[in-house]
Design a protein around this nucleic acid. Structure first.
Lengths: 237, 237
DNA sequence: GAGTGGTCTAGACCACTAG
DNA sequence: TAGTGGTCTAGACCACTCC
């Protein structure tokens, strides 16, 4: 018995069929698909709504289910919004991402940080600055603030590995939602030093607040990306 | 009879109830909600999955439906990814957005443009450069390329009003998906001139390809935002 | 094991598109 | 008006969490 729900199995099968051009511009009718997959209409609808979400098809009420053009499907796959989730820790395929800890302190939060993390002014936070290198070339500078109360026991050893791994495996906490803001900014002296960028080079900044699945904020961070090493692509309706 | 499907009506009602703290940390069980709203369980599930998508609740199989913290809900509402859809034309509440046409020409596309727009090298395109001002202050510089064949009849009068309005109302075409890439870049001489920014100021660039609902690409554009006037916020899981 | 969310069915009916 | 996608029901059963 497949662990996957039937509608996902059907969605994946349909996706394959679309990719090999088994269907041309349109899929068969819902009833026909229900017959083909020996299932009910509602299940087919669910499968199709998943494919629509993925940017592969488009349903038009009263008309039919249209397969998007190859160009649209191709671009939809460039969407990397989810790769920025846990951006701090994500390692891309076979690339060599390393950390260089620039500083690691304990202190009280600023007013802004306390507000973002919903903590009192006297509750201590870790103040972590890390340089991230991709194949030995600096790509990001990360300023991370975390409340000690929420994420206890961070050490240099943890920072050198993965904070997220520590949170999920050692502390057995689950990471939930995140809120990220992307913007351009001027580079400052630290950027120039640690990103090896010119004085006139901008940086691509990602400011984020991350929550545990319990709803507790556990990280406020600012990531300064070399402007030639970070961009975000979205596919939208 | 409400034009809205029942599950949306229920979702909106539940959202209101959550906002006025009618429920504390958790919603009633599915069966209970089905009873309350005199509907079937599946409809309730659909309503909840919509609220989950909106970032208001979180369903946990085997446990219940949890209301996210006020902080999370608040941040979820800052997501402005969809405001960047039709960014070129969207006018914010009661703000005064105007256009200043810097140039408007017809020419053949570059190789890159032809590739993005899926047209031949000899098919003419409009080449439009517009400065956008918010309350008389320059905020964006837009470079827009459109194939004449796809969007015929563009004039300066159209540009001064709204290209999207012309496409949808006059040409009766429907706008479909868009693919956008956000990045930081150095400002160039034009940015400095038309965005009134300093030589060292960066710009926040949005590069996009837009499609008609038919799947035909109709616009390739690069929008250069003053770095203090444009940012993108996403809320993710 | 009790409780709760998720999936699935078969069929009715609604809403929209297009000729 | 015919064809097609969307919603809805009532109830069965599955999958997961927590005690």
């Amino acid at each position: 018995m497949a662990a996957k729900p039937k509608y996902l199995t059907i969605a994946n099968q349909l996706e394959q069929d679309i990719l090999i051009h088994k269907y041309q511009k349109q899929l068969p009718h819902l009833d026909q698909l229900a017959l083909i997959y020996q299932t009910s209409k509602v299940t087919i609808v669910k499968a199709l709504s998943f494919l629509q979400y993925k940017g592969i098809i488009k349903t038009v009420r009263g008309h039919g289910t249209i397969i998007l053009t190859a160009t649209e499907i191709e671009l939809a796959k460039k969407d990397n919004a989810n790769e920025h989730v846990g951006f701090t820790e994500r390692i891309k395929n076979s690339e060599f991402l390393t950390s260089n800890i620039i500083s690691f302190d304990l202190r009280e939060p600023t007013e802004k940080e306390a507000a973002f993390l919903k903590i009192g002014k006297s509750e201590q936070v870790y103040d972590i600055i890390r340089q991230r290198l991709l194949n030995d070339f600096p790509v990001r500078l990360e300023y991370t603030i975390m409340p000690v109360k929420v994420i206890p026991g961070i050490t240099k050893a943890v920072l050198e590995k993965s904070i997220y791994g520590y949170i999920e495996n050692t502390l057995q906490l689950k990471v939930g939602r995140a809120n990220r803001t992307f913007r351009a900014d001027k580079s400052d002296a630290y950027d120039q030093l640690y990103l090896k960028c010119a004085k006139t080079d901008p940086v691509f900044e990602v400011e984020q607040v991350c929550f545990l699945s319990s709803g507790l904020p556990f990280e406020y961070s600012q990531t300064r990306n070399r402007y030639d090493q970070g961009e975000l692509t979205l596919n939208q309706v």
